[in-house]
Simulated scan of single mutants.
Amino acid sequence: MNPQTLLQHYDSAAPWPAEHGIAPDLAAAYQSALAVRALRSARGEQPRGYKVGFTNRTIWPRYGIHAPIWGTVWDSTLQFCEGEGQVDLAGTVHPRIEPEIAFGLAATPPAGATLEQLFASIDWLAPSFEVVQSHSAWKFASAAEPVADGGLHARLLVGRRTPVRQLADSGAALDARLAAARLQLFEGERLVDEGLGAHVLDGPLHALLHFVLELQACPGAPVLAAGDVVTTGTWTDAWPIAPGQRWSTRITAPFDTLSLALR
């Protein structure tokens, strides 16, 4: 499928055909995703950051994807809240929910950034929920398919933001704190899943660093900028969702709980 056809499937919430024509060429898939990004920008949508997916190594065998991917987050898909939010699932395809940690950037990380240089570029952290979707019903022949499918991004709800210096005074300290953190995921009062920060490429800060270096190496990719929001991947499996449900997370202090009502 060409970029215009990919965008039409996104807009119409139409599943991809069985013979969709997405070749298993990851570099070409990123170029296709960047072309869709240009089409969306041309019609007035504004990029607000990025999502990083498949950072949780514990779920790689379930999806047949064994390396992280990334995609764009938009002004039309991003919401902020102070602990409780609502997300409309209209127009999504096979939606699922992922509890994550999102970062806000204060500055562009330098080329080939180290963990400490990346830490110096961060403004804030926050618990988040990403609603992901799949136009191929969560069946992937290669990583190129979810990349071409917008990185599987549908919505991003970001909770209360905490300035990074309130959490740690160095990259090493923040990395250790996030890697050791624990998360519980609830649907209503039912405990659905649990996860560790270390599941996410050894910690969300490492996931962010991996993404920064991958973005810098991708031909034609935009430069990460101050104000960008980056969500770093799920701490649990991605769980199917439906309107009328309420989901929440409890994370090791100092992060707040985050609740999400679906409609």
Rank of each mutant, 00 (worst) to 15 (best):
S121W: 13
G83R: 02
L152W: 01
P68H: 00
I241N: 10
L258C: 07
Q86K: 12
P222N: 06
W247C: 08
G159H: 10
Q46N: 10
R48F: 09
T162A: 06
P222G: 00
V132E: 03
Y63P: 00
G227P: 12
P240I: 15
G104Q: 10
D123I: 01
R37T: 15
A107R: 14
V164D: 03
V36W: 01
V192R: 07
A238N: 13
Y30M: 13
D123L: 07
F103A: 07
Y30R: 14
T249P: 05
L39A: 06
G71P: 05
A120K: 06
T162P: 00
P17D: 10
V93P: 06
A28M: 02
F186H: 12
Q31C: 02
G171T: 07
A13S: 15
G233I: 05
C81E: 11
P109D: 03
V73H: 02
E45C: 09
Q31Y: 06
E45D: 15
L205S: 05
V158A: 00
Q166P: 01
Q31F: 04
A253E: 10
D123Y: 06
Y50T: 04
G244C: 06
M1K: 00
T77F: 02
G159L: 08
E84F: 03
R177Q: 12
V212N: 01
V164H: 05
G64K: 01
T236V: 02
G85D: 08
A143V: 14
I122K: 05
L185W: 05
E98V: 05
D88W: 10
L183N: 04
D149T: 14
H153L: 08
H94T: 14
S248F: 07
T108W: 14
R263Y: 01
G112Q: 01
T232Q: 06
Q46I: 12
W124N: 12
A111F: 10
A148Q: 12
Q4R: 13
P240S: 15
L78I: 14
H94M: 12
L152C: 12
A90G: 11
W70M: 11
N56V: 03
L213N: 07
A217Q: 14
Q184E: 12
D25I: 14
P99G: 11
D202L: 01
P95C: 07
Q117S: 13
W124H: 15
A113L: 04
G112I: 03
S136E: 01
T249W: 03
